[in-house]
Design a binder for these strands. Structure first.
Length: 582
RNA sequence: CGGGGUGUGGCGCAGCUUGGUAGCGCACCCGCUUUGGGAGCGGGGGGCCGUGGGUUCAAAUCCCGCCACCCCGACCA
């Protein structure tokens, strides 16, 4: 394949586009790989589309190699399956919905658990047919509140998603492991760094789940890891629960005047004045935060979350716990006179308590722990309020923020926090969708059993951006060989016909050897421009045919390392082939 | 959806305060020169000034609404 720059549909930009912030977006636009075409939607230009298809090819090869089979669905889907699974409502505003001329509801698929489930149900009905692994590489539509960062978060994006169908849990474990292995091979081939972290299954439902995160500070996900190898999405971090303490011998709870202490900071200050010897810190206080849960059906429910005062409530962690409900700030204090803003204490809380509000606490609140907390009247707090003796709660919830230095739940050391881009996500869905859509098969004994499922996604277009993020330098893009739009960039510099003749011959020789060659055959373009373009476009190998030609040499340069060598013209093709196949 | 910012040729920007012929650099076209690090000179083409309404003799400029984009938060591959 020969791509001539003189006719390639390409225009590189000298200046960075003003609306692009992250490097991948900036460079992909500047190098003429993509153009924005709609809010959160991009057009793939010839070079960009070649990268896209290479990423797709790697994924497809590995999916096929593991034994998964590709299918293709319509983009426009009927409402009913999503109604049956509950996601017509649960997916909320992120779902693109539309009506046809008869008024029937449709949607643009944001993810495809339902239709895959129905497809298998349509054709299979015996345990002998299972397991089966199906996948698609298709456009997904999500009406994101805020598309951003170019390809990293669009409203329309390409995703590879696969689904496994098994008769039992052991089978699901195997399907899950097979996908996990395939994902490792895929991301290794794509040259992407990744961390596999434990995750919440979130809106998809189900149990076990891991994410493949590409560590980068522009990532939207926060994850933790320990030196000992623990890694988890911050939403999924389990707090190390202390042992309960004996209640015997603890002092009685006592209420103190603590005027003007609506915040933890002011409260700790006053507590220290009252009891200078106690050494109180924010961690000795119990902060009770009221939120409103908004359920998918629109129902609203107040909830109080109790966390140690040295920590904020992490809304992402909280929402992950209460999904599919959403969390809003509580604004109805007038309607709940028992809730004293700033001085809220557990004494009135609990579904059976006077306020009739559900009360959940951080796992660190174990029986026997002593707390300073609100006395439910302005300017007063209660001290030595002992958990389990003086107050109870309706359950524990992982809603407190995770702080650097917190212990890993598996004892592998203190946690550090980092950011990452979610490249892939694998779930053990279990029977949620099979139940909802009644996907059952006959087992060996002739009994109907519900199929158990897994779902496994990779953001294809996002992976292109992630590769650009991780491989670019100050000069431009620098593609790994596996995904580069061409194997080699042949640059002819100068005006001498012999230069273009030699460059053309080299390009043709490389094409004949099976390479894809990007050939800068533009006349009357100065060498500086061609070099800048070559660096911006980022083919892994750049061959310059120019002034060295009078001495019989060309320059072969590695884009990523910058290493360059003068090579006799006659050896140039062999040298390039060796580099490409190394 | 909340907060902040920005919308003027393909890209980057000035003009708006103080209303009156739409401008600069890059890119594009033509000619000549130039050819190893985003060339020079000369000549060109291209813009419903995001959009709808209002004020005014007159609106890119002033007022109101909407839309889009970017950033920070809330949601996801």
């Amino acid at each position: 394949m020969l791509l001539r720059m003189s006719t390639l549909f390409l225009r590189t930009l000298r200046d960075d586009p003003a609306d692009a912030e992250v490097p991948s977006h900036r460079l992909l636009v500047r190098a003429g790989y993509i153009r924005r075409a709609a809010p959160g939607g991009f057009t793939w230009l010839p070079l960009g589309y070649r990268v896209f298809r290479n990423v797709e090819r790697v994924i497809r090869e590995e999916m096929d190699a593991m034994g998964a089979q590709e299918v293709h669905f319509p983009a426009l889907l009927p409402r009913e399956p999503y109604e049956a699974s509950g996601r017509w409502t649960e997916y909320g505003d992120n779902l693109f919905r539309l009506k046809d001329r008869r008024g029937a509801d449709h949607l643009l698929g944001p993810t495809h658990e339902e239709v895959f489930t129905l497809l298998v149900k349509d054709l299979y009905s015996s345990y002998k047919d299972l397991p089966v692994w199906l996948y698609q590489i298709q456009t997904k539509f999500r009406d994101e509140a805020r598309p951003r960062a170019g390809l990293l978060r669009g409203r329309e994006f390409t995703m590879k998603d696969s689904y496994s169908f098994d008769v039992d849990d052991a089978g699901l474990d195997k399907s899950y492991a097979a996908h996990r292995d395939a994902y490792i091979r895929i991301f290794d081939r794509l040259g992407l760094d990744y961390v596999i972290v434990s995750a919440m299954s979130g809106a998809m439902g189900g149990s076990k789940s891991e994410e493949f995160l590409h560590p980068t500070n522009i990532g939207e996900d926060t994850f933790v890891r320990s030196a000992g190898g623990y890694a988890a999405n911050v939403e999924a971090v389990a707090t190390v629960v202390p042992d309960p303490l004996p209640v015997e011998g603890l002092p009685e709870a006592h209420v103190e005047d603590t005027p003007d202490t609506p915040t933890i900071e002011t409260l700790v200050e006053v507590a220290r004045q009252l009891f200078p010897d106690a050494g109180y810190t924010a961690a000795d206080t119990l902060k009770n935060v009221v939120v409103t849960l908004v359920h998918p059906d629109g129902g609203r429910e107040p909830l109080v979350v109790g966390v140690p005062g040295d920590r904020e409530v992490d809304l992402k962690r909280l929402e992950a716990q209460v999904a599919p409900a959403e969390v809003e700030p509580f604004a109805e204090f007038e309607a709940h006179p028992l809730l004293v803003k700033g001085y809220l204490g557990p004494q009135v809380l609990g579904a059976d308590g006077p306020a009739g509000i559900r009360y959940l606490v951080d796992p660190r609140v174990v029986p026997g722990t002593r707390w300073i907390t609100g006395a439910n009247e302005p300017g007063r707090h209660v001290f030595d309020l002992v958990a389990g003796r003086d107050f109870t709660w309706g359950g524990v919830i992982e809603a407190a923020e995770v702080l650097p230095g917190d212990p890993a739940p598996d004892g592998s050391g203190p946690l550090e926090l980092a950011r990452g881009v979610e490249l892939g996500h694998i779930f053990q869905l279990g029977r949620k969708y099979a139940d909802a859509l009644d996907l059952r098969v006959l087992d060996e004994t002739g009994k109907l059993v519900t199929v158990t499922m897994g779902s496994y996604g990779i953001g294809v277009s996002r992976a292109v951006a992630a590769i650009a993020e991780s491989t670019h330098d100050e000069l431009g893009l620098a593609w790994p060989r596996e995904v580069a739009p061409a194997d080699v960039h042949v640059v002819a510099t100068g005006k001498d016909a012999s230069v273009f003749g030699a460059a053309e011959a080299l390009a043709q020789e490389l094409v004949a050897a099976g390479l894809t060659v990007l050939y800068d055959d533009r006349q009357k373009v100065s060498p500086g421009v061609k070099f800048k373009d070559a660096e911006l476009l980022g083919m892994p190998t750049i061959v310059t045919v120019g002034r060295g030609l009078v001495d019989g040499v060309v320059e072969v340069r590695d884009r990523a390392t910058g290493e360059r060598q003068e090579v006799p013209v006659a050896d140039a093709a062999a040298r390039v082939l060796a580099a490409v196949r190394s």
